[in-house]
Nucleic acid binder design. Structure first.
Lengths: 137, 137
DNA sequence: CCGTATCCTCTGTGATACTG
DNA sequence: CAGTATCACAGAGGATACGG
């Protein structure tokens, strides 16, 4: 029956509409937002790093911002900071146990970025209509 | 042999240090950065949405920002925008085929956020030493 | 309903200089 | 080497009003 189907569909949509605000997403964004966080984690995924190693590896980051974002990540329990009482001073940053669980996330981002880039390259060679559609009236 | 092992390790580290800057990561960030993009995509993952549906579902977003970020996503080919020439006017946003490939990414972010929240709850109940270590001299 | 146009705020970010 | 302390600023984001 048409109206019955229609009603059920509507009800489903109504239900779907009440999407609870996703606190998991916001939690993730709270940890990862910041211009350099992901790039820092990308480096630390490969191995532990010293401050200036990160500075050199991450093109364009200032000393100030690197410090700030490292502190953020530390505060969130994502990375550890180990001070070696030597001269000259040495500090090693590494993923914490909890931070290790982010590897998967970063890898997912990288993988998607890779396919996205390939798609972009393909797109530049041929003319594109950019998804703006007008449904038939 | 100690020094041999040490040297090999050092060489590996030297090699690892020359991490090429990851363009895949930057590509992903270029698409997803923006205060509301992920939340928008989270909604569109579940089903296509109209403008004001998104506005209501995403707590705190202004009309201006919602428009802006939707345009960004459209420009990147992530979502489609379909205009229904009715009165009152209706516009549906949906994931494009390419945008579908982001579902996996968003889900990964949400999953991690979920475990992160559980960990945080556990952490607040017991005293914590926050990862700041001093190695023995 | 679905926007665009303005104007304004404020946070994140960057540059520079100085310390343990 | 590995930071902290200031100052300054662009640009992302928000508020409001108007238009198709």
């Amino acid at each position: 029956m048409y109206s019955m189907e229609k009603m059920t569909e509507e009800l489903c949509k109504e239900h779907a509409k009440l999407t609870e605000p996703p606190p998991e997403i916001e939690a993730t964004l709270a940890v990862l937002s910041g211009k350099w966080k992901i790039l820092i984690l990308w480096q630390l995924m490969r191995r532990e790093c010293r401050f200036n190693e990160l500075r050199r590896a991450i093109k364009g980051v200032s000393q100030h911002m690197l410090t700030t974002q490292l502190r953020d990540l530390e505060r969130h329990g994502i990375i550890t900071r180990t001070i070696f009482p030597e001269v000259p001073p040495r500090v090693e940053y590494a993923l914490s146990e909890h931070g290790e669980s982010l590897k998967n996330v970063i890898r997912t981002l990288a993988t998607w970025g890779h396919t996205h880039l390939r798609r972009q390259q393909a797109a530049t060679s041929r003319p594109v209509t950019r998804g703006r559609k007008v449904a038939a009236g």
